[in-house]
Nucleic acid binder design. Structure first.
Length: 278
DNA sequence: AGTGCAACCCGAACGC
DNA sequence: TGCGTTCGGGTTGCAC
């Protein structure tokens, strides 16, 4: 999941977890617990009340009354699903958290890449898992000016830069492809070669594809589910990612490896040289 | 600084 | 149908 999916998980779980207390937890795969050691992690969850849910980039933050925050990163296939009654764990369930009132939270991740942390809330800005994250693309700090300055001093290809979480926090492979198509930019264009007009288009496109993704409750290509185990709808609106033809000009979408990632773009609307014709 | 690659894991898709 | 190969919604670390 990328930013829109994590935001959807946050919203769907916030409704279910508001004011509830964690009464215990069982770890089935200790590799999923990044910090602290599994025993302390479980002990630290007990009797903590949920204060609220936040999101930072692709991380979900569950603030607890114990002045600590449960931090979740889903990587490729992670899910966090609320069950109103105790439920038998689905395959690949690595952690079950019990809630007062009989509910449960199941962390499920077939690929075992996802991780959880229990971290002092006040220290999250310092040395925690969020320490190196860049700007939030849907908040005020993500300005056109910020993009202009940062891209202007990098010679690398634009797409891998969009995926750099220390620059912009939350874009992943799907929404990076979508934003570049919406902006009419070739994914391999050097960042410092973007014109002011292109930077403006890219800035607007990033905000737009993320907002649209949130509006459609995220993209379910295969694994993604929200906090109520419901699939998203944004896959029906994708422009280039894993699509056969460009919705603008009808040209066949091209697929290429850029920065080690499968990249989809329209050879007609996203030319290496100009783009839209500024 | 930029780029490529292996590693972490597993299931699904693909090729024959 | 069956089997081996490739690939991937992500991130990190390391070598060149």
């Amino acid at each position: 999941p990328e930013l829109p999916e994590v935001e959807t998980i946050r919203r769907t779980l916030a409704v279910k977890l508001a004011g509830r207390t964690l009464t215990g937890a069982t770890v089935f795969y200790s590799g999923a617990i990044a910090h602290p050691a599994p025993e302390q992690f479980v002990a630290g969850l007990r009797d903590a009340r949920v204060q609220g849910l936040r999101r930072r980039g692709k991380y979900l933050l569950i603030d607890l009354s114990s002045a600590r925050t449960l931090v979740v990163h889903f990587r490729m296939t992670g899910r966090l699903v609320f069950h109103p009654r105790p439920a038998s764990p689905a395959p690949h369930t690595h952690l079950v958290i019990d809630l007062d009132g009989g509910g449960q939270l199941h962390f499920v991740d077939s690929r075992k890449f996802g991780r959880l942390w229990l971290w002092p809330t006040a220290a999250l800005g310092g040395d925690g898992p969020l320490a190196r994250l860049g700007r939030e693309p849907l908040e005020d700090g993500f300005t056109r000016e910020f993009l202009r300055v940062e891209l202007g001093r990098r010679r690398g290809k634009i797409k891998p830069l969009l995926l750099d979480q220390t620059l912009i926090a939350g874009l992943g492979n799907i929404y990076a492809d979508e934003a570049l198509h919406l902006a009419g930019l070739h994914p391999e264009k050097p960042a410092c070669d973007l014109s002011p007009a292109e930077i403006g288009r890219l800035h607007r496109a990033i905000g737009r594809v993320l907002q649209d993704g949130i509006e459609h409750n995220g993209t379910t290509l295969r694994d993604y589910r929200d906090g109520t185990d419901t699939a998203g709808r944004h896959q029906e609106y994708l422009r280039v990612h894993r699509r056969p033809a460009c919705p603008v000009c009808g040209a066949a979408i091209r697929r290429k490896r850029v920065g080690g990632r499968g990249t989809h773009y329209c050879p007609c609307c996203q030319k290496e040289e100009s783009g839209h014709g500024d």
